[in-house]
Write a protein that binds this DNA or RNA. Sequence first.
DNA 1: CTAAATTATGAGTCATCACTCATCTTGTCA
DNA 2: TGACAAGATGAGTGATGACTCATAATTTAG
Lengths: 180, 180
Amino acid sequence: MSDPPLRADARRNRARILAAAAEVFDAHGTSASTEEVARTAGVAIGTVFRHFPTKADLLTALMKDLQERLAGRAAALAEEGDGTALFTFFAEVVEYAAGARTVVHLLAVDVGVDRQVAALGAAVEVLLARAGEAGTVRAGVRADEVTALLAAACHGALAAGWTPDLRHRAVARLLDGLRP
Amino acid sequence: MSDPPLRADARRNRARILAAAAEVFDAHGTSASTEEVARTAGVAIGTVFRHFPTKADLLTALMKDLQERLAGRAAALAEEGDGTALFTFFAEVVEYAAGARTVVHLLAVDVGVDRQVAALGAAVEVLLARAGEAGTVRAGVRADEVTALLAAACHGALAAGWTPDLRHRAVARLLDGLRP
DNA sequence: CTAAATTATGAGTCATCACTCATCTTGTCA
DNA sequence: TGACAAGATGAGTGATGACTCATAATTTAG
């Protein structure tokens, strides 16, 4: 069921390609060419297609990376058990989205940050439960609402014209709607 | 300063093209080809380019239409002077965005719903002022925050996976953050 | 160290578009 | 109605970009 291990150079190139893809898509959007990714990775175009038969596969791999990192962070925050962990997580994700602009943006448009963020649903539920116990969240707030607002805020954060200040104020207002 | 009036057939075709563009871009996104728009309009490709020298020009024209309609609606609501006009407007715009999915979506990505929505800034300020007088809005809320949240909600509304029910609840939470 | 298998290379293919232009059609106005 | 200008037509152009494949270079097992 498991494929034979990759050759050393193949493993190295795969990592380089992923790093290059993150950089290129972040800078020029998902419409950037696969060739540009290959150039940035210092690899031939054919190599990129050997590892990721389709451009979508490349995007998907990037997305998986992102999700794992975010889910990990959510778990770590939940661990601490603080009633404000949900709010912290929310703000952090939005900040991340604002920084990694294009990656998140394009994932949103082309593959679905939404599906992405939705995959974090379980993590959000845990955080919401913690907040509920601590009484830091308004009664009746459901996890899917929180997830939806998070997705919307990420979309907004990577929109042109959102200064850091505006972003912080907007997120604050948004979180106000969740507080008792 | 004003161009000579268009010939009758030219006026008719222009209107047909705009209608077709709205329909096609709504169904297949802005990446739909200009040829598809021409076909839907029942017109040759050259005719589209005569009226809109660039695909971006076509998108812009569509956007201008949209903005005028929204600004008009905002003015009408402000006229009524009710303290809840801001909230009504907010919810209506999000509902519209959810329906006209791709048009708004693509405008957002390619030309900027954000710039678009920002152009409604003046309208929002008036509505916010009304709400302030009526005491229906939390003290310290600024117009740019409202506009930002509106843009975010529109982005969210056209995301996959937002059912009407979820959309309504999310918007309600969002507006809760603006209330006293 | 050598052979076989895996991987890398990059010029080339094919499809898709935005956009052009020489030619034909139609509206307008005297 | 006739003639001229404005507009319509659609095959063609050039650019771009995803993806292929025959060949060359590496890695690794024995």
